[in-house]
Measured scan of single mutants.
Amino acid sequence: MASQGTKRSYEQMETDGERQNATEIRASVGKMIDGIGRFYIQMCTELKLSDYEGRLIQNSLTIERMVLSAFDERRNKYLEEHPSAGKDPKKTGGPIYKRVDRKWMRELVLYDKEEIRRIWRQANNGDDATAGLTHMMIWHSNLNDTTYQRTRALVRTGMDPRMCSLMQGSTLPRRSGAAGAAVKGVGTMVMELIRMIKRGINDRNFWRGENGRKTRSAYERMCNILKGKFQTAAQRAMMDQVRESRNPGNAEIEDLIFLARSALILRGSVAHKSCLPACVYGPAVASGYDFEKEGYSLVGIDPFKLLQNSQVYSLIRPNENPAHKSQLVWMACNSAAFEDLRVLSFIRGTKVSPRGKLSTRGVQIASNENMDAMESSTLELRSRYWAIRTRSGGNTNQQRASAGQISVQPAFSVQRNLPFDKPTIMAAFTGNTEGRTSDMRAEIIRMMEGAKPEEMSFQGRGVFELSDERAANPIVPSFDMSNEGSYFFGDNAEEYDN
């Protein structure tokens, strides 16, 4: 993207840094990872977990959730003011799984939030270390993106479920800051804005008074975040219109849905970061690795190297396929839920299948599930090659597409044709070009129609051997075009429920 120079890199967003050079960025990201790792080690000690239990991804998720809940100030305040039966607002906890007599047992633990905050700050040299908290939120978000298709949420806001490739980060909490905003897809931002506008339509006082002023500035800020994701002048001009509207209503909703559809071809720039579970960072720190000293990046080879040398386990339900569970977590670790499966298959070195073909449910185990038949197995999170994460949407291309997802959002900077089903997408653009945004709409449609099938995206960008740390010898991959490109292809993934 041309304006790259004016933006802070995501590592800076990730670490609240002012302008830093590459070495400083690597050190501050490393410091953040160190903090998460030290916190995780301490929690495993508190909970008396064995090494194996500490490497269980379900335990990692519970521990991450506990610290996120302990620092969720708004919710904590709300819980104190609106006490609900049987919930102690000062405590947080969740299921911890232990191996007892050759069987997995679930144990519900409860801790004072104050105590968890103390352990977290102690692991982070006394700081609140917001960057580390956001990092864990993005890992949870990436896992949700890989596990669930947001059909219901899309339909509720009037969008087409086939636009799911635009929904990265749709389950990120509001408090995820600049680093969170960077990884949100165009569809996620559109959905947040539509929800806001709908509230304004239904509630006369939404934009009024002292609160209304705050609401208005939040609305304009979200519009600017979305505008910054678009790469064409016409899309940005249309966002200006939406932002400046005196009284946002149905016309703005129409414009936003139009823009979301246009992003299936004229893709937005959305950041991709490899955020790993805390149970990967903990053992690495415990083994003596100093992330701050060595430096770390979320968008280069580092996460690949770390996963190459990590042992992570997962509980497996009786009829689940461990290899499929591994694929789910591998995609989440690489922030690749909406990437082209052919690119992923090449990088991973084994075939990556669409969601609907995987015999696996989510990673988390519900409290009512029976533990008797639970097994555990090693997650295979290694890769054959590594590639640089991208934040450009890439230019655009036609490809055989599917009944489910009709476009992709690249996660890796790797040369390819970008699949999208042009006739299906263009069919949504018939007729409606009147109104105050008509010239911009016409211009956007013209650009979409001009998108050429034979153009290559990320020209000359390749993948790298894991021994090639400096990215000196790019390998331009070859793809098996007979395979499906979309992950949520004609899909039956479970729906995400809060």
Rank of each mutant, 00 (worst) to 15 (best):
Q459M: 07
R55H: 14
L381M: 13
F488P: 03
A366G: 14
L306C: 11
D145F: 07
K422E: 05
S376M: 02
V352A: 11
R152S: 05
L49M: 12
P303R: 06
V476R: 11
Y111E: 11
T430M: 03
I36R: 06
D302V: 05
P453M: 06
S376D: 03
E244N: 12
L108D: 05
N321G: 03
M167D: 01
Y281N: 10
F71G: 05
Y97N: 09
F291H: 11
G169H: 10
A323F: 12
V329I: 15
A22I: 01
D468S: 08
I41S: 14
F206T: 03
R470T: 01
W104L: 05
F346Y: 08
T360A: 10
V352M: 08
K77H: 14
T430F: 00
M371E: 00
S367G: 14
T23Q: 14
T45N: 11
S326G: 10
W386E: 06
I301K: 12
L172K: 09
R55G: 05
G356L: 06
R19Y: 05
I475W: 01
E115D: 13
D101Y: 05
R384Q: 09
S217T: 15
F488G: 01
K98C: 09
N21L: 12
L466V: 09
S165M: 13
D240M: 03
Y10H: 15
D340T: 10
E469N: 08
M448S: 05
W104K: 04
Y487P: 02
R38N: 08
L276T: 04
N417L: 15
L266A: 07
A2V: 15
E80F: 12
G435N: 08
C279D: 08
R19S: 03
E73I: 14
I445Q: 07
T378A: 15
L110G: 03
T424G: 00
D290Q: 09
Y52V: 09
A251Y: 11
Y281V: 09
Q58S: 05
R150W: 12
R221W: 10
G485A: 10
R118W: 10
F420G: 00
G349L: 13
K227Q: 13
L358T: 13
V183L: 06
L358P: 09
A401V: 00
A131Y: 01
A401S: 10
P453W: 15
K227H: 09
M66Q: 11
G209Q: 09
Y385S: 04
I119H: 10
S297R: 03
M32H: 04
E252T: 00
I119A: 14
Y289S: 11
E292V: 14
G490V: 04
Y111Q: 06
D160F: 04
V270E: 06
I388T: 09
G462Q: 02
E339I: 03
M374Q: 11
R382Y: 07
E11G: 13
M66L: 08
Q311F: 01
K31R: 15
Y385Q: 06
T430W: 03
N224R: 04
G288N: 08
M481D: 00
R355T: 10
I365Y: 01
D88H: 02
F429A: 01
A286E: 13
D127P: 02
P474T: 13
E24G: 01
A178H: 12
Q311M: 01
M331Y: 08
R117G: 08
M137I: 13
K273S: 05
L344T: 13
Y496Q: 01
S274I: 07
R446F: 00
T146Y: 07
K113T: 06
R174F: 03
A332H: 09
R74K: 15
M1W: 12
D480M: 03
L344H: 05
D112G: 10
I388D: 12
S170D: 09
D16G: 14
G86D: 01
G17A: 12
M239Q: 04
S377R: 14
E107T: 05
Q4R: 01
K227A: 08
S413W: 05
G177W: 03
F39C: 15
F429L: 10
T350S: 13
F230H: 04
R384E: 03
L108V: 12
G393W: 05
E449H: 08
L68M: 11
R213M: 13
I253H: 09
V29T: 05
S413A: 09
G362C: 01
S274P: 06
D468L: 00
P173E: 06
C275P: 06
S3D: 00
N59A: 07
K48F: 07
G209N: 13
A263K: 00
S3L: 15
R389K: 14
Y219L: 14
I201Q: 04
I33P: 02
G30K: 06
D72P: 04
K357M: 10
T6K: 00
S176L: 01
N395Y: 13
C333P: 02
M191A: 01
D372H: 11
Q12D: 08
F206C: 09
N144E: 04
T378N: 07
E484M: 07
E320C: 07
T360D: 02
N76I: 15
A70Q: 03
M222P: 00
E14N: 09
G158M: 14
N124G: 12
R391S: 03
D160K: 02
Y52H: 04
S486N: 07
E495D: 15
P303H: 05
Q231T: 14
E73M: 02
H82R: 11
S345L: 04
G431L: 14
I253G: 05
A218Q: 05
K103I: 08
T62K: 01
L344A: 02
D372I: 03
V408G: 00
K31M: 12
I253C: 05
K77Q: 09
Y219T: 14
L256Y: 01
R121W: 13
G362N: 08
A179D: 02
L143G: 10
A278D: 11
E252V: 13
F479K: 01
F39I: 04
A2R: 01
F304M: 14
N321R: 15
G295S: 03
S335N: 10
R204I: 08
M191T: 05
A428P: 01
A284C: 14
T171I: 08
F479M: 00
D255L: 04
P83A: 14
K273I: 10
W330Y: 10
Y487F: 12
I347W: 15
M196W: 04
K229D: 04
E443C: 03
W386T: 08
T23R: 11
D34F: 13
C275L: 06
P423E: 01
S297I: 04
R441K: 09
I301Q: 11
Y313S: 11
R208E: 11
N125E: 10
A427H: 14
F258E: 08
S335D: 05
R99Q: 07
C279L: 13
S407H: 05
H82V: 08
M136P: 02
N319D: 02
P423T: 13
T151K: 12
Q58G: 06
Q459G: 15
Q149D: 02
R436K: 10
G180F: 11
T134Y: 12
I388S: 03
M426L: 15
G431F: 15
R150M: 08
R391T: 03
S141D: 12
A284Y: 14
D34I: 14
W139P: 07
N395C: 11
N247M: 10
S297K: 09
Q4S: 14
N202K: 10
I96R: 01
I225L: 15
R391M: 03
I116T: 10
G187R: 05
A218K: 03
D421E: 00
L418T: 07
F304N: 10
M426W: 03
T390G: 02
N492K: 12
V109I: 12
P453R: 15
I265F: 01
I253E: 11
S262R: 04
R213N: 11
G295P: 07
L466A: 05
K198T: 07
T62D: 01
Q308F: 09
L193W: 05
R121L: 14
K98V: 09
E24C: 05
L108T: 13
S269G: 11
I36V: 13
V186Y: 04
R175C: 02
G228S: 10
Q308A: 12
S269E: 03
I253P: 02
A284G: 02
K357Y: 09
V476K: 00
S407T: 14
I201R: 01
A123N: 04
D491N: 13
V408T: 15
A27S: 10
Y296D: 11
M167W: 07
L259M: 13
Q399E: 01
L328D: 03
A123C: 14
Y10P: 06
R213W: 05
E495V: 14
A271P: 06
L68D: 02
M159C: 09
V29I: 15
A403D: 01
Y219C: 09
S402I: 01
Q398E: 00
Q327K: 12
R416Y: 01
T146M: 02
P477F: 00
V343Q: 06
Y219N: 10
G435P: 08
F338L: 06
K351T: 05
M66Y: 05
H324Q: 14
D160L: 02
R152E: 05
D340N: 13
A271K: 12
V155Q: 08
E46G: 07
L49H: 03
